[in-house]
Amino acid sequence: MRSYWVKTVGIEVNGRKIDWVENETIKQLLRRMRYTFPLVVVKINQKVILRKDFPDVVVPDNSRVDVIHMISGG
């Protein structure tokens, strides 16, 4: 039986499939998505990325990114 290896270039952000951009940081991705919320928790493939690392962490291909908007009130 033949096995196939299908290369997919793309990432999923909050359930939306978008193109993967090489060397794109989280900060750049948030700008590309037009996410302007000041306060977000970002997870890449279930790992939480701290806000201070947004300018340095590069989004890998095929990753699943979750951006949660933190809203005041309690």
Binding site: L39, V40, V41, L50, M70, G74
Partner: peptide, 16 residues
């Protein structure tokens, strides 16, 4: 917590 900034800080710190 009430404030979004404090909420975010708290979640980040506990998860870390």
């Amino acid at each position: 917590l009430d404030n979004a900034e404090t909420k975010t800080e708290f979640i980040e710190e506990v998860l870390l």
